[in-house]
């Protein structure tokens, strides 16, 4: 029987323009194709993925626009099983702020929260300000997973989200997460079996559109 899980995830990044909402849209809704004269993103999205033969539903919430309210960012960290910290490889200032965010994330979140570090806009190699090695070193020092992505070319976008989900899934298998505690951002249960079926159905019927949910 398919196991349904909800992971809630958060994008954390105090800078606008690093392209996280584009990443999110790219991942959750394939119908919006990236084109050069259109920048488009979303702050909330859901998608079913399959890991280890199990159907898993990802709900992804973006913290965008709420940075001025500490209470809001705080709560987001807490309800999430995983987080993606995104910086822009063409803007060093976005990279320099990572330490602060990480400190916040570690402090406010469940200590088991999976954190992935993402250097976005890898397509803009000529304008690169942050070396890949720097991202790797930062991730290694702080125990994060690291990846460079591009929302424009869709490079590594799938991988970034799915690897984060896999990591969470592994932690669940190891028993690190208390799955009975919904505050961790994980929900498992037969009560969603029905919803699952619907998801699967709409997924199948929508191949041309490639839509989600």
């Amino acid at each position: 029987c398919p196991l349904s899980m909800f992971f809630r995830k958060v994008f954390l990044n105090s800078f606008s323009g690093v392209g996280k909402s584009c990443l999110l849209l790219q991942f959750t809704d394939k119908r919006f194709q990236p084109v050069h004269d259109l920048t488009i993103g979303v702050e909330f999205g859901a998608r079913m993925i399959t890991i280890d033969g199990k159907q898993i539903k990802l709900q992804i919430w973006d913290t965008a626009g709420q940075e001025s309210f500490r209470s809001i960012t705080r709560s987001y960290y807490r309800g999430a099983a995983g987080a993606l910290l995104v910086y822009d490889i063409t803007r060093r200032d976005t990279f320099n702020h990572l330490t602060t965010w990480l400190e916040d994330a570690r402090q406010h979140s469940n200590s088991n929260m999976v954190i992935m570090l993402i250097g976005n806009k890898s397509d803009l190699e000529s304008r690169r300000e942050v070396k890949k090695e720097e991202g790797e070193a930062f991730a290694r020092e702080h125990g994060l997973i690291f990846m460079e992505t591009s929302a424009k070319t869709a490079s590594n976008v799938e991988e970034a989200f799915i690897n984060t989900a896999k990591e969470i899934y592994e932690k669940i298998q190891e028993g690190v997460f208390d799955i009975n505690n919904e505050a961790n951002g994980i929900k498992i249960g037969p009560q969603h079996a029905a919803t699952n079926a619907t998801h699967a159905g709409s997924q199948g019927g929508q191949q041309a559109g490639g839509g989600c949910c």
Binding site: S21, L25, T39, I40, G41, E43, F44, G45, S202, C213
Partner: peptide, 18 residues
């Protein structure tokens, strides 16, 4: 129905966000 509702809301989200 649910499907149309969700799609419409999602679309509106995207519209106003961008």
């Amino acid at each position: 129905g649910r499907y149309v509702c969700v799609q419409l809301l999602q679309t509106l989200n995207i519209l106003f966000e961008n």
